[in-house]
């Protein structure tokens, strides 16, 4: 292919090819791997104390309950763990795999296993899964597609010691980063659309109802909101506005340079206010993938 595209279809094709098939530096994906691995590990560990109470032979989420609850297409490796010992062993195995992914050890295998085990655990107890789990599952599958261990990993360290040169940018990594960016945009837009269906996001009171969940809140700003209705309104309107701005802005290169650093602060803050801090962190991690991506409207 040479020269400038002459027709609209040529231009679309060229943009598509540039976006998805330009080999990408592995470092951005490696950064996502490290943070997503930590987050996945934290979510995984949150099952530790109640593993048997939920999924054990006499646990709450029995196979009988699952038959009436989850999709017929759902499958889980944890369905095979019929004894407490096997259940615990599988769970520990999953924790080890996630730790290996985080440090980048045997990454081509650990990234695939991490995605399979993580979605298996969520399918074992779908009513226990939250929005952070959903985002981390997407990130783990994207990591399994790309070459997430090509940089900032033990794999790379061992390869360098053996005298192997740094791997070149790859198309697989590019596809993984592209998918992360698409998901960041789509998920932010879906959240904004869902919110804007509710009256409280229009009358400015959503932030108040979020702040008044006394058990799940992480920070208590109810006093602040009680003193100022305008502040409550401002925070309420700022959340969907931010989500829409983010969803569209990641596709515009000049805006992206401002949005991505802002995303590292904004998403965790929204998560804190909503009582879903891991969701906020997961969205921030998802956003980092777009930081050094080329492509988009300049």
């Amino acid at each position: 292919m040479s020269g400038r595209p002459t027709t609209l279809s040529d231009a679309i094709g060229a943009t598509w090819n540039r976006y998805w098939f330009t080999p990408a530096d592995p470092r951005p994906l490696a950064i996502v791997r490290i943070f997503a691995g930590c987050l996945a590990l934290a979510l995984w560990l949150s099952y530790a104390a109640d593993l048997e109470a939920w999924f054990g032979p006499a646990g709450i989420v029995s196979q009988e309950l699952l038959r009436g609850w989850r999709s017929p297409w759902a499958v889980s490796l944890f369905d095979l763990a019929g004894s407490p010992g096997l259940l615990r062993a599988l769970w520990i195995g999953g924790a080890v795999v996630l730790a290996m992914l985080t440090v980048g050890l045997a990454t081509p295998v650990s990234s695939v296993l991490a995605a399979i085990l993580f979605s298996s655990l969520l399918h074992r107890g779908p009513m226990l899964a939250g929005p952070a789990d959903d985002i981390v599952a997407v990130i783990l599958w994207c990591l399994a597609i790309g070459r997430a261990g090509d940089a900032l990993s033990i794999d790379r360290l061992l390869a360098a010691r053996a005298g192997h040169a740094a791997p070149p940018p790859t198309v697989r990594t590019r596809i993984a980063l592209g998918l992360l960016q698409v998901h960041a945009s789509v998920i932010a837009a879906a959240a904004a659309v869902a919110q804007l269906k509710g009256d409280v996001w229009w009358n400015g009171m959503a932030a108040w109802w979020l702040a008044m969940r006394s058990d799940s809140r992480v920070i208590d700003v109810s006093g602040l909101f009680a003193r100022s209705e305008y502040l409550t309104n401002l925070i309420t309107h700022a959340i969907p506005l931010w989500e829409l701005l983010f969803a569209a802005g990641v596709w515009f290169v000049p805006l992206r340079r401002l949005l991505i650093p802002a995303a590292l602060v904004a998403w965790p803050l929204i998560g804190l206010l909503a009582g879903e801090p891991y969701w906020g962190l997961a969205m921030a991690v998802l956003s980092t993938a777009s930081f050094r991506l080329t492509g988009g409207v300049r």
Partner: peptide, 26 residues
């Protein structure tokens, strides 16, 4: 659904956070 459900990707991502309804409370 048959191929998007097993990897936990068959989702709405409709994180509404709250509608101010009793169901949204703790």
């Amino acid at each position: 659904s048959p191929w998007m459900t097993p990897p936990w990707l068959d989702l709405g991502y409709d994180t509404k956070l709250t509608y101010g309804l009793p169901d949204d409370a703790d």
